[in-house]
Each structure stands twice: as C-alpha cells, then as structure tokens.
C-alpha cells in the first residue's frame, strides 16, 4: 500500500504521521518539492482538503486531512497496534490526551505564536490571557506526569506522539528553559519522548528555544520593546530560503 503525504517540511503536524508510521512499520512517501503557498493552493489539493491546509495523506482509498486524524489512520493500518493501548479504557485515555494536547496545549500555542509568525495581529493583553491558559494546561499535564513516564500505560502510545509533536513546536519556538522549568515533569517527559529512536529519526536533534520568537507586527504603543534581531533557531531554515519570489511559508 502506498501512502503519500502532502506537506512542506519541517512541519510538526506532518511529524505526527511520520512518527506513527515509524512505530507501526507503515511506509509513507513525502511528496518532493512541496511548496507552501503554491502546492496547497492548486485545485487538485483543494479537492483533497477544501480548506487547503497541510498535511494531507493520500491513501489508496482517498485522501485524509487533519493531522490527528491522519496519525490515527496510520496507526490503525497496523492491526492491534500497541500505540492504541490494550483495552477500551486505555484507548479512551489515549484519545483523551490526544484531544487535551490539541485543545489545551496546541490551541494556546497557536494563539501565542500566531502574532509572532505574522498570522494574527498582536495584542499584549490577549497574549497574557493566552499564556495563562497555556500554563493552566501545562500545569494539569505536569500533575498527571508526576508519577508517570508516558501519558498512558508503560510504553509510547499515539497520545505521546501527538503530545510530543505539539510540545516540540512550543519547546523550539517559544517555551524557553525559564518558562518550562515551572513544569519539571513536562520537561522530563518531553526530553524522554523526543529522544526515543523513532522520534529522533524524524525530528533529529531538538534544541530548546533560547528566546521567544519576536513579534512580527508591532503596534507603536501596545508592547514592550524587544530586540527584533532574528533568533538563532530560525537561522538554519532561513538559509534554505534564499530563492527569490518565495511564497508565504510558515514553519509549522
């Protein structure tokens, strides 16, 4: 069976499927030369996903979009996949942490980073509220992980893949050491996860952000002055973008 993933890389949402595939022994081919802002605007792409977002998995039975749904599908391709736990209640708990990771962690990270990637206008007060919600989510996660290595059971499950990829985005973009040190169990968990061989294969070495991404669009009044120099973590990716007339690209 041939699965083809349409996405730009690196992209943490594509990583979910690729890591799940690595655990499940499923082969996924990533399309070559995918150009964000171009390839995902073509009529063929919109036919696969009407909202035009990446990633999309092309399967022999048709396309699937939404990264969690793709990761779930890839996991189910292998019968009795241990990534889905070993009982109905474990399955429910895995789903619960996948959803928690999406609604409490990723949604707040997106709202925090959106203005810093130029997607949304920046507002200092809103940002405080968002960071507050994110911390509430991390706090709950921290409590849960206090006595656990993985989210559910004693091995990596799909919940850890989704949570790991969502945290990856936060750890590499905005959650500096001083931010995460409030949540020691989350820190320990994150480094355990991203150093699993199947994660390392896909993510490579992970380096925690040394500073928060700068704000993309500054209003004259609303926010404190900050250095607007490009951050180190962005540089490697920037170097590849020498090509002129490059279309909008986000590193998500």
């Amino acid at each position: 069976m041939a699965f083809v993933l349409h996405t730009g890389l690196p992209n943490k949402n594509a990583f979910k499927a690729l890591i799940a595939a690595a655990y499940s022994g499923v082969e996924i081919e990533v399309v070559k030369n995918f150009q964000m802002g171009v390839s995902n605007k073509t009529p063929e792409f919109i036919k696969m996903n009407p909202i035009g977002k990446v990633p999309v998995l092309e399967t022999p039975d048709g396309p699937v979009f939404e990264s969690n749904a793709i990761a779930r599908y890839v996991t189910r391709v292998k019968a009795d996949n241990p990534l889905y736990g070993s009982s109905l209640i474990e399955y429910a708990q895995i789903e619960q942490w996948i959803d928690f990771s999406t609604t409490e962690i990723d949604a707040n990270l997106r709202r925090w980073l959106g203005p810093r990637l130029g997607f949304e206008p920046y507002n200092a007060q809103t940002e405080d509220v968002i960071i507050g919600s994110l911390k509430r989510g991390l706090d709950a996660l921290n409590i849960h992980l206090a006595s656990r290595t993985y989210l559910v059971g004693d091995t990596v499950t799909l919940a850890d893949i989704v949570m790991g990829c969502n945290l990856y985005w936060g750890f590499t973009r905005s959650m500096t050491k001083s931010f995460t040190s409030e949540f020691p169990h989350v820190e320990r968990y994150f480094w355990t996860i991203v150093n699993q061989p199947n994660f390392l294969k896909i993510l490579g070495d992970v380096k925690q952000a040394e500073s928060v991404l700068p704000i993309a669009s500054k209003k004259p009044t609303a926010q404190p002055k900050e250095s607007s120099k490009p951050k180190e973590i962005l540089k490697p990716k920037e170097a590849k973008k020498k090509k002129l007339r490059k279309k909008s690209q986000s590193p998500r």
């Binding site: 130029g118 490059k246 909008s248």
Partner: peptide
Amino acid sequence: ENTVSFVTLNKVS
C-alpha cells in the same frame, strides 16, 4: 523588523 522572509510575507498576506 522585517528580518525573516516568511514572517514578512505572512504579515502582508
């Protein structure tokens, strides 16, 4: 402030 190409492009979009 337009130091990062894709951020600048996103801003304009």
